[in-house]
């Protein structure tokens, strides 16, 4: 048994194609990003080696840390919202009437491209004609805020479409995981007189724990490198109030002609993400996980 399951040729055959692809297309660019970070380069003229200067500057760059804070806030909100997605998935998977239709509806937003979602929410948030303010005014709110223009609100306003956009993604994963639980297990508990809440908490949750942990990592990594909607909807503005690490990096590399510095920021983004992921993996690790 063990001999078959540790056949080196088979392992190589199965894992190498994938490994080769990411080695060439992801790891080489990654190493090059770190390397460009050591250069004074505007992306046009010849580059000049300046050692760690860009990295040192980045660590002292208040704007970078402000954008990092925003990224971390996004990661926090995304992780917390996983609980909501999980609760919804538990309800949907428990065979209530109409759950099939509801599930499909919940998943619709994730089908849209970021361009479409941005156009949509720009109109929802429009201060004078937008859907949101129309509703608020109909409810009697006199002077609803200009969501994307107020520095104190804009960051939270823009989280809403991001969480909205990703709801379907996680519900889809949780739903598939919950449907994977063997029916007899749930049935047996029900016969023993367990309430739906007890079944969810004592049986279903432990069984999808490994999936849940993976989604925590996905949510955090995805949030820390998030770019799309923020760039289109606010461009990181007003004056950096909604800037995140990836949009800051993009602006430096592509708008300010500071490609070397932008690469250094990009590399730091990766390091930060890596550290956070390792911490989260360690914090959520349990004995059962080593079971295999």
């Amino acid at each position: 048994m063990n001999k078959v399951m540790s056949n080196k040729w088979i392992i190589a055959l199965y894992v190498l194609p994938a490994l080769l692809l990411i080695a060439v297309l992801i790891f080489i660019p990654l190493i090059l990003t770190g390397y460009y970070g050591l250069m004074d380069w505007n992306g046009i003229a010849t580059m000049e080696f300046i050692g760690l200067e860009n990295y040192i500057n980045a660590i002292q760059d208040a704007k970078f840390w402000e954008s990092a804070l925003h990224s971390f806030l996004l990661a926090l909100f995304s992780t917390l919202s996983l609980l909501v997605y999980l609760a919804i998935s538990l309800i949907l998977a428990s065979k209530i009437k109409g759950s099939d239709l509801l599930r499909k509806i919940y998943l619709i937003p994730m089908l849209l491209s970021s361009v479409a979602i941005a156009q949509l929410w720009i109109k929802v948030f429009n201060p004078s004609n937008g859907m949101l303010n129309s509703i608020l005014m109909a409810l009697g709110v006199d002077n609803p805020p200009a969501w994307l223009a107020e520095p104190s609100i804009v960051l939270y306003a823009i989280f809403i479409p991001i969480l909205w956009q990703y709801a379907g993604f996680y519900i889809l994963i949780y739903y598939a995981a919950l449907k994977n639980i063997p029916e007899p297990l749930v049935e047996a508990a029900r016969i023993d007189g367990a309430t739906p809440l007890q079944i969810a908490y004592k049986i279903k949750l432990p069984l999808i724990m490994s999936v849940f942990k993976v989604t925590i990592v996905l949510a955090i990594v995805g949030s820390l490198k998030y770019f799309d909607l923020i760039y289109v909807m606010t461009g990181g503005g007003p004056n950096g109030a909604s800037e995140v690490m990836a949009s800051y990096m993009y602006k430096l590399a592509f708008s300010s002609n500071e490609f070397g510095y932008g690469s250094a920021i990009g590399f730091l983004l990766l390091i930060i993400t890596l550290i956070v992921t390792v911490i989260v993996r360690k914090a959520t690790a349990t004995k059962e996980e080593i079971q295999y």
């Binding site: 994938a18 490994l19 990411i22 080695a23 297309l25 992801i26 790891f27 080489i28 660019p29 990654l30 090059l32 990003t33 460009y36 992306g43 990592v217 996905l218 990594v221 820390l224 490198k225 770019f227 690490m245 990836a246 990096m249 993009y250 590399a253 592509f254 490609f259 932008g262 690469s263 990009g266 590399f267 983004l269 990766l270 993400t273 890596l274 992921t277």
Partner: peptide, 18 residues
């Protein structure tokens, strides 16, 4: 672990090397 790191690369820093 290598595959997980692959998750973390911001695409805008990858496009110029690619």
């Amino acid at each position: 672990g290598l595959f997980m790191i692959g998750l973390m690369i911001p695409i805008h820093s990858a496009i110029i090397p690619l």
